[in-house]
Design a protein around this nucleic acid. Structure first.
Lengths: 186, 186
DNA sequence: CCTACCGATCGGTAGG
DNA sequence: CCTACCGATCGGTAGG
């Protein structure tokens, strides 16, 4: 309670690291890069974190925790299944395309990461995707549409937006509306 | 004509490098890795290639050349606009999901690559995507659907398949059919 | 938080 | 195609 206003030094470093990882990827971001951005030498970061791997996993999981909560809230505010889905897409893209903040667009490039780290990320992401599984199960899809593939395609589509999205032309909400329109069937 | 049957040593090295890049990414593949797979030391590769960057660009562009030609053939065999699109998707996934061969699924992770290389890859890929632009322009889409975004979503969807596809459950053609079903509107 | 360093690995080269 | 090496960079650590 005493120092609620001022973020801790560790927190500052986590946010700086999250932005660098999001922008340059896991392997493209060195501990020295993070150090420079934080105004210290790379080695000094190890007073606050255990390893680069542990730092990345912590950021990834914290980001998914936050995203899960915000998406669940957005979904609850809707009652129609298609409206729920579009709300979830819009919130996910809002989070993923936000230029700042520690909530991230770095759930991609799993191949850049050491195998032990990858296993942790995959497990956490699988849980996250259950949220969309529930939403897809609610949809009145035509019977010949395989819901498992449909869900994979939707998640892959949402994840891929950060690869081609450029701010200015479209808002994240507009992109979400277009995706929802493409995936609306039956 | 004389030695048509036996692939040149250079060609062998290119195919080995293509598979490694496809599996582990640009930064995840060292010249020493390629050397080991080819049965030589890393430094020895420089008799056949100029640099890692040039090697990657050459592989990338050759793969897109081949893909472009095969997709164009598949499209010509169809007359209906939707059939053309589905044929193009099926051929692209066939190429991208083939477990071997130098035609590759490495058109992703542009962020892993040095800026000068990235510029070349992007330019070549933009040309490649014109092929799909023509196909989308033929479709009788509902008027409120923005064709530029629709095309981006389709290409992003196709590109992302290699991230979640696991051989066995579905053939590339079946995945293409599902994608075509999702994107069929109007 | 810095100094000063470690062992490993990288792309690439000279010279044969 | 190998030997032998280069300068750079990496994650991480000891000791203060």
């Amino acid at each position: 309670m005493a120092d609620a206003g001022r973020p801790s030094r560790r927190r500052e470093i986590l946010e700086i690291a999250a932005q660098l990882f999001a922008r340059k990827g896991y392997r493209g971001t060195s501990m020295r890069d993070i150090g420079v951005a934080a105004g210290v030498l790379g080695g000094s970061l190890y007073h606050h974190i255990k390893s680069k791997d542990a730092l990345f996993v912590e950021l990834h999981n914290a980001a998914l925790d936050a995203a899960e909560e915000r998406i669940a809230q957005a979904v609850e505010a809707q009652s129609d299944p298609w409206a729920k889905l579009e709300a979830a897409c819009a919130m996910l893209l809002d989070i993923q395309l936000a230029p700042d903040s520690l909530t991230m667009p770095m759930m991609n490039d799993f191949r850049e990461v050491p195998p032990a780290v990858r296993a942790e990320l995959v497990a956490r992401r699988d849980r996250f995707e259950q949220l969309f599984r529930a939403l897809v199960d609610l949809l009145p899809l035509p019977p010949q549409m395989d819901r498992s593939i449909y869900r994979n395609l939707l998640l892959s589509q949402l994840n891929g937006v950060s690869d081609w999205y450029r701010p200015g032309r479209l808002t994240p909400a507009q992109v979400a509306a277009q995706i929802a329109a493409v995936f609306r069937h039956g």
